[in-house]
Amino acid sequence: HHGSGALAALHADGPHAGLPVTRSDARVLIFNDWEERKRSEPWLRLDMSDKAIFRRYPHLR
């Protein structure tokens, strides 16, 4: 199991509170979210491209 239990660094406060600090933090969040959702949506594709990251977390651009 590759990303399970990996912890992402999140901004503690300010405008980005609760959001990932780096792209690799964002990838951890996206992976964990996908892993949760694919139980009920097995067709869901995992997209951890930069484009997917920016779409979801525009502050990382």
Rank of each mutant, 00 (worst) to 15 (best):
A9D: 08
E35M: 15
S4N: 11
L7D: 08
S24Q: 12
N32A: 11
G5I: 12
A12L: 12
L60I: 02
D25N: 02
E41M: 08
E41L: 06
S49T: 07
R55Q: 13
D13Q: 10
L29G: 00
A8D: 03
S40L: 12
D25W: 04
P58V: 04
N32G: 06
S40C: 14
D50M: 07
N32P: 00
L19K: 06
D47E: 05
L10N: 15
D13S: 13
A12P: 10
H16T: 05
A8F: 07
R27Y: 05
A17T: 07
P42H: 08
P20E: 08
R61C: 10
R23I: 15
R45D: 06
I30P: 01
V21L: 13
T22E: 04
P20I: 15
D33P: 01
A26Q: 00
P42S: 05
I30E: 00
L44D: 02
E41K: 09
L29S: 02
K38L: 07
M48G: 01
G14F: 03
H2Y: 11
P42K: 06
G14W: 04
P42R: 09
S4P: 11
Y57P: 14
L46V: 06
Y57D: 00
W43K: 08
P15W: 06
D47A: 02
R37G: 04
G5W: 12
L44S: 11
T22L: 03
P20N: 14
N32F: 09
A8M: 05
L19Q: 05
E36F: 12
E36Q: 11
Y57G: 01
A26V: 01
S4V: 14
S24A: 14
K51P: 12
G5A: 13
L46A: 02
L29I: 08
A12S: 12
K51E: 15
V21I: 14
F31T: 05
H1T: 10
R39K: 14
F54P: 00
R45N: 07
D50K: 06
F31M: 07
A17S: 08
E36V: 11
K38H: 13
I53S: 00
V21S: 09
H2W: 13
H1E: 11
L46K: 01
L29H: 03
D25C: 07
S40W: 10
W34H: 04
G3R: 11
L10K: 05
L46I: 04
P15M: 06
L10H: 04
W34N: 01
L7I: 14
R55F: 15
L44G: 03
V28F: 06
D25V: 15
D25I: 03
A17L: 07
S24W: 14
H16P: 03
G18E: 04
K51I: 12
S40K: 11
V28Y: 06
A17Y: 08
E36L: 13
M48W: 15
D50H: 07
L44A: 08
K51C: 15
V21M: 14
R27F: 03
K38Y: 15
G14H: 04
P58G: 02
E36T: 10
D33M: 07
W43A: 10
H1G: 12
H59S: 02
A26T: 00
L46M: 12
M48D: 05
D25S: 10
A26K: 00
A12D: 07
R23V: 15
A26L: 01
D25R: 02
L29F: 04
G14Q: 03
G5Y: 09
L7E: 09
D47C: 06
P15S: 05
H11W: 13
R55M: 13
E41I: 07
R56M: 09
H1C: 14
I53A: 00
S40V: 10
E35K: 15
G3Y: 14
E36A: 11
H11N: 06
L29C: 06
H16Q: 10
R39M: 09
R55S: 11
G5D: 08
Y57T: 01
D50G: 02
S40Y: 15
D13L: 07
W43D: 12
T22H: 06
S49W: 02
I30K: 01
D13T: 10
S49D: 03
I53H: 02
L44K: 04
E35V: 15
D47M: 03
H16Y: 15
A6P: 10
H1W: 14
A9Y: 11
W43I: 03
G5F: 10
R45Q: 11
A17N: 06
R37W: 02
G18K: 05
R23S: 08
L10M: 06
D33T: 05
R39G: 09
D13F: 08
D13V: 08
G18M: 09
W43F: 09
A9N: 14
S40G: 10
H2P: 15
F31C: 08
L10I: 08
H2N: 09
R27D: 01
A8V: 13
E35I: 15
V28Q: 09
P58E: 02
M48Y: 06
H59W: 03
L7P: 10
V28L: 12
A17H: 06
W43R: 08
R45V: 14
P20V: 01
H11G: 03
H11Y: 13
P42M: 10
D25H: 04
D47G: 02
L7G: 11
A52M: 07
L46Q: 01
T22I: 10
D50W: 15
H11Q: 03
R23W: 09
L60S: 00
R27M: 11
P20L: 03
F31L: 07
A17F: 09
R27V: 05
R61K: 11
H16R: 05
G3W: 13
P15A: 12
D33W: 07
K38N: 08
G3S: 10
I53K: 15
H2F: 15
A26S: 05
D47Y: 04
I53Y: 02
H59E: 00
A8P: 13
R45F: 07
G3E: 09
A6V: 10
L29Y: 02
L44C: 06
Y57V: 00
F54T: 07
H11F: 08
H1Q: 11
V21E: 06
S4Y: 11
P15L: 15
K51F: 13
L60F: 04
E41S: 06
D47I: 03
A8C: 08
P20S: 01
H59D: 00
L44W: 04
V21C: 15
R39D: 12
A9M: 13
P15E: 06
P20T: 01
A26P: 00
K51R: 10
D25Y: 06
P15K: 06
R56Q: 08
A9R: 14
S40D: 11
G5K: 12
A12W: 08
D50V: 09
E41C: 14
D13N: 08
Y57K: 00
S24H: 14
E35T: 14
S4W: 12
A8Y: 11
L19C: 08
L44F: 10
P20F: 15
L44N: 04
A52C: 08
L46F: 03
P20Y: 00
A6W: 13
R55N: 12
H11K: 04
P42D: 03
W43V: 03
S24Y: 13
A6Q: 11
P15Q: 06
D25P: 01
G18C: 05
D50A: 07
A12C: 13
Y57Q: 13
F31E: 03
H59G: 01
K38D: 02
A12M: 11
R39P: 10
I30A: 01
A9F: 14
M48V: 11
G14A: 04
R61V: 08
H11S: 03
D13G: 08
D50Y: 07
G18Q: 07
S40M: 09
D50S: 07
H2G: 14
E41G: 02
W34I: 01
L10F: 05
L10R: 06
T22M: 03
V21K: 13
S24P: 04
V28K: 11
E41R: 05
H59L: 00
V21W: 04
G5V: 12
T22V: 09
H59T: 07
